[in-house]
């Protein structure tokens, strides 16, 4: 096979390059900067221009990184390689590899529905398509950005009017920026957890309107606040200083009541960086590919569906990308694990 799923990552022997390797390698193409896809230790990296700041922030300033624009091809040992928008987070890319007329596309993580801030997903015709399946079950049908926007705002207004602060939980890269963009015209002070503040800086976004969290900050404000923080603060005593507050959790998992209850959320916003059921099916069919490789998520279920429903040659492949960590029993979730959602 032109691409192999080996112990270190997704490997293209002809070009001598790995895509999102989970072990250090010589040459790595990085679809996006989430930590289950972008790992430390490789000798050189290739990614989209917009990923530069955040990759240097996360992997170290000293990394050997080359960046490309969308649809700008490079040739590696006869393999024509280009990046295409995946709509997942800033800089996220699908990787297209063409060799002797055979085209492979590795989607990384992707989202079909536009979110208003990420370059929208573009289907790339190919013969072989590597897809994620984080939300590859028909129970996952996500609301569009406008609906989410309205829900977030009205929830915040309701709480603020009742004199309560709003603590919104979203992963620091991706979700947090979407939350901030939805709430950009709220008049209340916005406090950012350090991880989010730093991520904004690395993304080249302005933090001008926000206040970085510091101990005792609640005392410097008279009015209720909007606080944006990563999932790691859930259940911690850190939250207590914002009493009285309501907790809103933003994640695709919030589609399920059980997940909402387990996370102790007062409110769950179904906000995801991943494609929902409909999105996955649209994306897979739009590639026109006959051979589908299903990675992280409900992969065996989704592969079976593609095979039965559309007669595609769909198989599952093992990767170390994390898609469903939130749903494992009894694991202490870390920020890293939450990332994939």
């Amino acid at each position: 096979m032109f691409l192999q799923f080996d112990k270190d990552g997704i490997y293209c022997a002809q070009a001598g390059v790995y895509i999102d390797p989970w072990k250090p390698v010589d040459k790595a193409i990085i679809t996006h900067a989430h930590s289950d896809h972008a790992r430390r230790g490789s000798k050189s990296y290739l990614a989209h221009h917009d990923s530069r700041g955040i990759l240097e922030y996360r992997l170290g300033q000293e990394i050997q990184l080359e960046t490309l624009g969308y649809s700008e091809p490079v040739i590696m040992n006869g393999v024509r390689i280009s990046l295409h928008p995946a709509g997942h987070i800033t800089g996220s890319s699908q990787v297209r590899l063409e060799y002797k007329g055979e085209i492979w596309v590795v989607s990384g993580d992707y989202k079909v529905m536009p979110d208003g801030i990420t370059t929208p997903f573009e289907p790339v015709p190919c013969h072989h398509f590597v897809t994620e399946s984080t939300f590859g079950l028909p129970v996952y049908n996500f609301p569009d950005a406008a609906t989410l926007d309205a829900d977030l705002k009205s929830w915040c207004c309701k709480n603020l009017n009742a004199g309560k602060s709003c603590v919104l939980i979203g992963y620091s890269l991706g979700k947090a920026q979407r939350i901030l963009s939805s709430l950009h015209d709220m008049p209340s002070p916005v406090i950012l957890h350090g991880a989010i503040y730093n991520t904004n800086t690395a993304l080249g976004l302005s933090n001008e309107r926000y206040t970085r969290y510091a101990a005792g900050i609640k005392k410097t404000f008279q009015e209720p606040l909007i606080v944006v923080a990563p999932p790691s603060v859930i259940g911690s005593s850190w939250l207590r200083q914002f009493e009285p507050y309501e907790l809103g959790v933003c994640s695709g998992w919030m589609q399920l009541r059980g997940a909402r209850r387990r996370r102790n959320a007062d409110m769950g916003f179904v906000m995801s960086d991943h494609a929902d059921w409909k999105g996955l099916n649209e994306a897979v069919l739009a590639t026109g590919a006959d051979h589908i490789y299903v990675t992280h998520g409900y992969k065996s279920i989704y592969a079976k569906w593609l095979t039965e429903q559309f007669g595609l040659d769909a198989v599952t492949v093992d990767t170390l990308y994390e898609g469903e960590a939130l749903e494992q029993p009894d694991t202490e979730t870390t920020e890293e694990e939450d990332e994939a959602a």
């Binding site: 129970v139 399920l256 059980g258 409900y298």
Partner: peptide, 18 residues
């Protein structure tokens, strides 16, 4: 696929609703 969805959601009413 209904069965798989149900076992992930864990609640019949919710599965059907979704």
């Amino acid at each position: 696929l209904f069965g798989d969805s149900y076992s992930v959601v864990g609640d019949l009413a919710e599965t059907i609703t979704l």
